[in-house]
């Protein structure tokens, strides 16, 4: 998009500065929350792909600064490939979330306790190869989801950034298998010209006959193999043959635009 200094003039950018957020992304989480209220009464949360940390700031403010009762036992863990400068009440560390070891470390930090909210605003390096970029983005979400299945308590919520491309409906159907409700939401602070949107997955209800097991020698695809058997014949499983090509199950998640029409429009330039 042009060579203009658009970001500098962006109203969300200015507002983020004003309110002390490290990135304009903060408003995406806030506007999603306006619609879905998933930030109320949180005890323990994980913020994946968190740098520079504006989502963690939002979480910290909601859970600690604005909290009324006891903050004892509350916990925020934030992870990113990039280093992050400290944020009050947030435990940060630097790691690759697609690496199985990272997930074990997060689990250790939580001890035996479960989290009630996991979010991921991750975006990998974009190569320009549309199908690869989309796959890697979905794998990032699947890594986040892998952790989520290990750490999220039943009825907990999960929010992640997606890019609505060719195969996004395959992801919807997988998420629908784990959560009661899956919605694709676009906050007004996310540019309409970008494919970015967020999946809001509410009410975690894993299949009864599946229990997640972290194993350093298992890839994300393998991890979910037994979980998605019902909808995903893709997996190799124990078969000794590569399966023939077949269309995968696809469902379209309902779309919700959030943030209210009176909020700023991120596509506008002045």
């Amino acid at each position: 998009m042009g060579k203009s200094s658009k970001d500098k003039r962006d109203l969300y950018y200015r507002k983020a500065k004003e309110l002390g957020y490290r990135a304009r992304s903060a408003f995406k989480l806030l506007q999603l929350n306006e619609e879905f209220h998933f930030l109320d009464d949180l005890e323990r949360v994980v913020d994946l792909c968190a740098a520079p940390g504006s989502w963690s700031q939002v979480l910290s403010r909601k859970m600690f600064d604005e909290a009324e009762g006891d903050v004892q036992g509350k916990k925020i863990v934030a992870v990113d490939l990039q280093p992050m400068s400290p944020i009050d009440n947030v435990t940060t560390f630097q790691a690759d979330i697609t690496h199985p070891k990272t997930l074990s470390r997060i689990l250790e930090l939580f001890g035996n306790e479960k989290a009630d909210f996991v979010c991921s605003d991750g975006a990998p390096d974009v190569t320009g190869l549309h199908d690869l970029d989309e796959y890697v983005q979905q794998q990032l979400i699947m890594s986040a989801l892998q952790l989520t299945t290990c750490v999220l308590k039943p009825h907990g919520n999960f929010v992640a950034k997606i890019f609505r491309g060719r195969d996004i409906d395959m992801l919807y159907s997988q998420l629908g298998y784990l959560f009661k409700s899956v919605v694709c939401a676009k906050p007004r602070s996310s540019r309409g010209t970008s494919l970015e949107a967020f999946i809001v997955c509410l009410d975690y209800q894993p299949p009864a006959n599946w229990s997640p097991k972290l194993d350093n020698n298992v890839s994300v695809e393998e991890f979910f193999h037994d979980c998605f058997v019902g909808i995903n014949k893709l997996s190799l499983g124990d078969d000794s043959q590569l399966p023939e090509w077949h269309e995968s199950v696809r469902t379209v998640a309902p779309f919700i635009s959030c943030g209210g029409l009176d909020s700023f429009d991120s596509d506008a330039t002045y």
Partner: peptide
């Protein structure tokens, strides 16, 4: 594969003969 696994496949039958991977190195590859 992008999770650092090698499938050994028989060309004629399409049978997967082996699946090799490196212990503890299953993060994503570009």
């Amino acid at each position: 594969t992008c999770y650092n696994m090698v499938l050994v496949v028989d060309f004629a039958s399409g049978d997967v003969l082996q699946r090799n991977s490196l212990p503890n190195e299953r993060s994503i590859l570009y």
